[in-house]
Design a protein around this nucleic acid. Structure first.
Lengths: 404, 404
DNA sequence: GTGTTATGTTCTTTGAAACACCAAACGAAG
DNA sequence: CTTCGTTTGGTGTTTCAAAGAACATAACAC
């Protein structure tokens, strides 16, 4: 019944555990080392399914290109010859840029997702695309000596809170920033000389959590972030980020959750992000605003029944959106970030119960809600991942270009 | 900035246009021929990105294995040497099985998605899993002589209206059939001796429409079918069927569309399939039931304002579900089948307008609603695709096994 | 110590695909 | 109707990533 008479496994595609978009096995190994930060040669052999000798050769090439380095085996003592450990080179790095309504944050992130540097440039008012690009370019210019001496920069990734076409890095519409049809990637690339790509912030956060955070080792994940500018979502299915026809997929903030709900800025009514917002909570708490930890503290301190009622109201709407998501995606993990994470932390079992009772049995049984694991570095890591993308797709070409 | 110093394109993964899950280039070519039914060698060369000589060698192997055959070039006259046409062998086929509440349909489908034979076995009552398997096995047994003489059967695919784990072909829950935890694939495999796999019917329909129907050439597609047993959905993103952690993804019938809506059999309230159902329409029309064409005829003939109201009510709920889907998936095509296709046909611009006004600008601009293109053969083609899956993943192994 | 096990190392083999070159089959131009 | 340019198929050669075999090495277990 089975395939049978094949002399050996198809040499073009070994049983890889990573997404199959990898160009070749050199890229596969680079990605694995990037994702795991440390991996013994023996582990790499198992994960890739390649032959021991092949893995040895490939690592040799990566070492020669200066992309990874090997250290003496320090793993737990066990029978057999110890296997050297492979780590990403600390000199490979990507730049991350995250424009928000009150700041532009620029980061320097190592291979392995280690945030080396994070510079938050606060702005008086909402930055225009041009301003955000200028700020980022200036900060990067300030780092340039260091960058050129100590690092090999693979690219810049920009995380944008809005609809972004990742093919050309154009922001179609970022409502809270007031941007429309801004070719941010091209602008920043011209201003800095580095290759640049842009994508939706929540999508990048989802990828970051998939690789380094609460979704590590999973293939199906939903990320939802609640912030001052609404609710953003990123969906990873079968190990791959859902892009859609133009890269706009993942807008879970505009899931319908309420009949005759309020009008959303998107034009529709009853969207998740109009019914579930941190603004309503701050208002009830008598605060004019604040960040997520402040919100959590205030909510925990409050004994107002109105606040409690609003919390449970928002949780019930959140449950409806999550019910939909669970039924349509059958994820293993749902990651709640920002004030949605706070809402969950306040009443985890309440949301879990709502989800279990509303979602379909099969999918509901598997979906586990988690708070985000990467904290304040999340967006830097996610955006940097975009800056690493082309490098990881073809490390040999890049390594050669970088060493040249 | 670009990769540059690589002597040649990575030989392991040419710029293929198909999904990257293909094991090797032999499989790639087989799939292309299967999907397009006719393809000249020159076209195959362009599509695969492989070298002319490589394509020639590969086709030679496929011909030797009896999987495809070549015919004299009949293409439109143009400059240059004419290229022979490659077609799938008519002897390769898969079996399709589709159990419903009132019948079990068995089909024989050629490579290329041509339905050779379709046998609908009507049942007095809802068939149990055992009964459905016995019926299918009996019909297949009846065809066995023919099958063994004239065909090489690659496998059986079962389309099940319910939650199916495609890994082991177990039906987790098919509410309208009343099945729970039935290992249908194993049962049918044991009963017939053919390899068998099972999956959700709407998911298979989505794949069929993607390959041969209204979604041909697209990569992002949503399929929604409305039938007597509710609303089923299948989602194709980035050219791949959304599976989810256990293969339960795609249940768009249980999208939330109404606050304080009726209780759904799934446990939640306000699901699309409780608010939008053909049962309500039949009731208002004073009919006890019927099939889709009958419904369309009756709806078109009716002048009752109650019926018109119900149609627009159902369309508005459908629009909400589609709005969600468009925002989260950014599809190019939305395919409406069954009575949902009828609803759309009655007032296409009404639904289009609702969708345009409610969904977010970016994604909405691209999503086009279409009726299903494959008609009554749809489910046979989809299920057969499942029966072809393992063959297409490794045609060389299969070809050898089949010729042996 | 000695045996066992797991791994790294080196050299050879393999096979899929590219490549270079030539032949074939067409339309277009004169 | 001949010639030319173009596109494709066919054949033999070359390339190169990966497998495989044999050997070396470094740990544990006793």
């Amino acid at each position: 019944m089975m395939s049978s008479p094949r002399q050996r496994a198809a040499p073009t595609a070994p049983p890889s555990e990573l997404d199959p978009s990898r160009r070749n096995n050199l890229a596969l190994i680079t990605s694995l080392v990037h994702h795991h930060r440390v991996l013994s040669r023996a582990q790499l052999t198992k994960r890739t399914g390649l032959n021991r000798s092949t893995v040895g050769t490939l690592i040799g090439q990566l070492v020669a290109l200066g992309l990874v380095y090997e250290t003496a085996p320090t793993g737990e003592a066990q029978v057999g010859r110890p296997s050297p450990e492979v780590r990403p080179s600390p000199s490979i790095a990507a730049l991350a840029v995250y424009p928000e309504i009150d700041a532009v944050t620029i980061g320097l992130v190592n291979l392995g997702g280690i945030v080396q540097k994070k510079i938050r440039f606060a702005t008086e008012r909402i930055p225009s695309a041009r301003e955000a690009v200028n700020i980022a370019a200036a900060v990067i210019e300030g780092m340039r000596t260091e960058l050129e001496h100590s690092y090999r920069i693979t690219g810049i990734g920009v995380a944008v809170p809005g609809l972004v076409n990742p093919d050309d890095g154009t922001v179609r519409h970022a409502p809270h920033l007031g941007w429309r049809d801004e070719p941010v990637a091209r602008m920043l690339s011209e201003a800095t000389g580095y290759a640049c790509q842009a994508a939706n912030d929540a999508s990048l956060a989802a990828e970051a959590e998939l690789i380094f955070g609460a979704g590590a080792g999973r293939d199906n994940l939903i990320y939802l972030n609640g912030g001052a500018s609404g609710v953003g979502g990123g969906i990873i299915s079968n190990g791959m980020l859902l892009r859609g026809a133009s890269g706009y997929a993942g807008e879970l903030g505009h899931t319908f959750v309420r009949t005759s709900g309020e009008q959303c800025h998107c034009g529709a009514t009853g969207c998740l992000e109009t019914e579930v917002s941190q603004g309503r909570l701050f208002e009830l708490l008598g605060l004019s605003g604040g960040d997520t930890p402040q919100l959590e503290q205030a909510l925990r301190a409050s004994s107002s029944p109105a606040v409690a009622g609003e919390i449970s109201r928002q949780l019930s709407f959140l449950a409806i959106a999550l019910r939909n998501a669970v039924n349509t995606f059958n994820p293993e993990v749902i990651i709640l970030d920002g004030f949605l994470g706070v809402l969950y932390a306040l009443a985890p079992s309440a949301l879990d119960d709502l989800l279990l009772s509303q979602a379909m049995d099969g999918p509901a049984a598997q979906a586990k809600v988690h708070p985000a694991a990467l904290g304040s570095n999340l967006m830097m890591i996610g955006a940097a991942e975009l800056g690493f993308a082309r490098f990881l797709a073809d490390p040999s070409g890049f390594g050669a270009a970088l060493t040249a």
